[in-house]
Every structure is written in structure tokens, then in C-alpha cells.
């Protein structure tokens, strides 16, 4: 049987480690890891502010939690096609959020993906909303 005093000490140390460790991790992941005003694709920078003038925008309906939301979007493929990527359909793509969250998408999924301009979010109506990426800062190409 573990003595109570010793148990309390062990638990206290573990709890402090959890709070400090998770607190530091939370702080680090809360710092944006790139410029929130632009999306970088293959070295090309696209400003969120000019997104709907640079590319054709569409109104896209998608479910976000319990809400049915209409987003003003541009096609992700429009950004990719404008970025001088050779054989775009031969690659996979990693959509990167400012918090470090990354999701890898196939070309097929990318062709069904949008960037919601106001929300700065990559949305994929056919993919679990959990895999949508908030505050997109980069679309990285993975060599096929």
C-alpha cells in the first residue's frame, strides 16, 4: 500500500508537470507560425484580402457542427494552377494552418476543396470537418 503522503507528493509533481507542459505547449501552438495575411503556394504569396479579386469566388454551402453555413470561397485548384506547379495532378498537398495543424490531401480531394475567404479556412465539403484547416498559411506540395 502506498503511503498517503508519498502519493500526494507524486500526484502533485505529476500534476504540476502536466500543467506546465500543457501550458507551454498551448502557448507555443497559439503563436501563429506564419503570416496570417497570405497563403503561400509553391513560393507564390496570395493575399487573403485580394483573394476574391485575384480569383473567381463562389458561394459554397457546407455543414459546420450543427450549422449549415454558406462560405464565400475560391477554388484551391485555382491557386495551385496559378503557382506554376508542373503536373499538379501528380502530387499530394499538405494544407498548413497557422497553429501548425497539417492535413494531407490527394489531388482528387484538392479538386473538391475551397478556401473560405472571410474565415481563412480550407473547407472540403466531402471530407470530415475535423480535417478542415483553420487560418491557412500555406499549401505545400508533396512530390509525387
Amino acid at each position: 500500500m502506498v503511503e498517503r503522503g508519498r502519493l500526494n507528493v507524486v500526484l502533485a509533481i505529476a500534476a504540476v508537470a502536466v500543467l506546465v507542459g500543457s501550458g507551454i505547449t498551448l502557448a507555443v501552438t497559439s503563436v501563429p507560425q506564419g503570416d496570417l495575411n497570405v497563403v503561400i503556394v509553391n513560393g507564390f504569396e496570395y493575399s487573403w484580402m485580394n483573394m476574391n479579386t485575384t480569383f473567381t469566388s463562389y458561394m459554397v454551402e457546407a455543414d459546420l457542427k450543427e450549422d449549415h453555413v454558406i462560405f464565400e470561397c475560391v477554388l484551391i485548384t485555382d491557386l495551385i494552377n496559378a503557382s506554376q506547379i508542373q503536373n499538379p495532378s501528380q502530387h499530394t498537398y499538405v494544407v498548413v494552418g497557422s497553429d501548425g495543424y497539417e492535413v494531407t490531401f490527394t489531388w482528387y480531394q484538392i479538386t473538391h476543396g475551397y478556401l473560405a475567404i472571410t474565415e481563412k479556412r480550407a473547407i472540403f465539403p466531402d471530407v470530415a470537418a475535423r480535417n478542415w484547416v483553420r487560418d491557412v498559411i500555406e499549401i505545400r506540395i508533396v512530390e509525387g
Binding site: 500543457s22 502557448a27 501552438t29 497553429d99
Partner: peptide
């Protein structure tokens, strides 16, 4: 993983 560990705070 870092997001999960951080949000656990």
C-alpha cells in the same frame, strides 16, 4: 499532437 497536448491544459 502538440495541439492535443496543449489543449489538454
Amino acid at each position: 499532437v502538440p495541439l492535443i497536448l496543449g489543449r489538454g491544459f
